[in-house]
Design a protein around this nucleic acid. Structure first.
Lengths: 342, 342
DNA sequence: CGCGCCGGTGCAAACGATTGCATTGTCGGC
DNA sequence: GCCGACAATGCAATCGTTTGCACCGGCGCG
């Protein structure tokens, strides 16, 4: 019944030594200062009394919490769970814990959430939620808080990042569509306030031009958010505004899924009459109707890398310039939402 | 550049009062002890110096961390993100933060993970990951750590829980199948070491009998895990062992999805030749082929309720007996994986 | 045989907040 | 004009660790 937790002092008294001796014996780094037989007794007793170090006291003294803040827009977005799992796996291997916070809706929570994390004294930050031009994160980094971004990147080149090869992904998609005979494809682009949205859009434009696609300005529509409803809305906008295009390249899977729903509602067959591509290869999109052609990004791996990167920085290692920004390769996975143009 | 954080003492010196005065002025509960104009000056200065209380010191003194441990099997399982979002939303409203840990693979991590949480001094625990007969959690509760389970429940009736109405869900499914003319349906049951698996299986048996379904023992197969591969394996086992049944009632959506994959591979049409039902209504299953008939559970709401419950206990409120175990209503959502028997 | 060194421990001061109690000053009542 | 009460603030202990430094005994070496 809520009996007091056992402390260093309890162990020390039981063994008949000073607390500092116990502390040293329990820490592998300093254990060699202590005579082996004493250390052994201490280990045994602390085991028997079920001693657990008090993390608050440790933190107060050392200024380390062994806690990492993980900030994502919305855990309910299927893109993020694998990333988080990757992060959590490497953190826990290293004895760190993750505090998870959702930052959406952005304006309301972003600042407050980061405040709370900072106040808790997290040792570092992994940000999956970050808009271009965000200044709060800058402030925290200036305060000396190690941070890395994952999936997205910041404007400042000096905040380390792990991202996917957006450029390559877009190239693969366009090559694929070209091989299928498409020449006029629309781009359902993501918000330009987010690095992925911007990079994918720019990659689309660059490669489309290079490959000789029709590059009229009006073949692109920008979404405000990254969900299915917005995908529907934007697809409708495209269809209403123009015709003659045979494929829609969406900035991510959720937009693509929304677009496909709209096509179905309008009686336009996908892929027979209109090809649609996604980006991310979220879990389960292979089971959709039609199974989605998309770009597979290594979510889990990206999460692991970001966490490893942060760990390295916390170990005091400066990152090599080549390690500051890791971009992870992607691959095209062709399923059934794309087809040869008629 | 990592300048020292400002402390109570800094503020006190700047204002020309004692730290205790600052402490009181900053705490709304004790602010009335302080003369309004002094309090105001303190507020202003602490704002200007960007004062953030040191959570470690606070915790050390008060034995509260305002952190809740959230233990789930695997965040990558689509059932959990909405729950977590629900939890996180109410926690953050109350100034609490969530530490998230994945406990799978179970044997390897369960104990270690809970140790880490306890050592961090979390104020409470929300467990979505819990097997019947688990003793570790018992120990923690006996140590006085408030805990609630979500989605699953413990064997001990005295650990509060928020769960779904499994019984009602199964009844709705069987009624639906009966109305479609099915009389011989197989049960792809979940692991019996988990409360949901067990309850759904028992509900199936009870209602199947009551409604006059064929209740041969061999019409049920127990899965070891709750994923698609296992769904495929178990469905294969059923098909190989017997015939003449016209529907498969799976214990959850992932098993159902696996079963459908297997049916397709064997050239058995779903739902024309075999109806399949799921349970949970995970995000996106409405977009599968065929769209899945399943039971909608209110994941987000369940998460919110569990967190609220825990908050209430932390506020010192004993729970009314009627609040100890909340079961949230479910509803049947009929889509296209079930059809009238031929 | 004496001195210095060093391996093994103990001592005590932090870390930054909270909080019961002591202290001061003011004012009202008689 | 004095005393008691009360409002406002200061004092200092405390939470459980870590860690620089002091201490002590024994041993090796000259």
């Amino acid at each position: 019944m809520a009996r007091r937790r056992t402390t260093l002092k309890d162990v020390a008294e039981e063994v008949g030594v000073h607390t500092s001796t116990v502390s040293r014996a329990l820490n592998p780094e300093t254990r060699h200062f202590i005579r082996p037989e004493v250390a052994e007794r201490i280990l045994a007793v602390s085991e028997r009394l079920n001693y657990r170090p008090n993390a608050a006291a440790y933190s107060l003294r050392t200024n380390k919490t062994r806690i990492i803040g993980v900030v994502i827009p919305d855990i309910a977005n299927p893109v993020f769970p694998p990333i988080i799992r990757g992060i959590e796996d490497v953190l826990s291997e290293r004895g760190y814990l993750a505090i998870l916070v959702n930052s959406e809706p952005h304006n309301a929570r972003h600042g407050a959430v980061l405040d709370a994390l900072q106040s808790r004294g997290v040792d570092g930050l992994i940000m999956a939620s970050l808009e271009l031009g965000d200044s709060i994160i800058r402030g925290m980094i200036d305060d000396g808080l190690p941070a890395v971004t994952v999936n997205r990147r910041a404007e400042d080149a000096d905040v380390p990042s792990v991202t996917n090869d957006e450029d390559q992904g877009m190239r693969l998609i366009l090559e694929h569509l070209k091989a299928l005979g498409h020449t006029r494809v629309a781009n359902l682009a993501g918000p330009q306030s987010i690095s992925t949205g911007k990079e994918r859009f720019e990659a689309f434009r660059r490669h489309a031009r290079a490959m000789g696609f029709d590059t009229s300005e009006d073949l692109v529509v920008f979404s405000q958010r990254l969900n299915e409803a917005e995908g529907e809305r934007c697809a409708a906008e495209l269809l209403d505004a123009l015709s003659g295009f045979t494929a829609i390249v969406a900035s991510n899977d959720r937009l693509a899924v929304g677009a496909i729903s709209l096509l179905r509602r309008r009686g336009i067959a996908c892929p027979a009459e209109m090809s649609v591509t996604g980006f991310n290869d979220m879990p389960m999109v292979d089971r959709f109707e039609p199974p989605l052609t998309t770009v597979r990004v290594q979510q889990y791996e990206v999460g692991r890398l970001a966490a490893s990167m942060l760990m390295k920085r916390l170990d005091g290692g400066e990152l090599e310039p080549s390690e500051e920004h890791i971009v992870v390769p992607v691959e095209l996975v062709v399923r059934a939402s794309t087809a040869r143009v008629r």
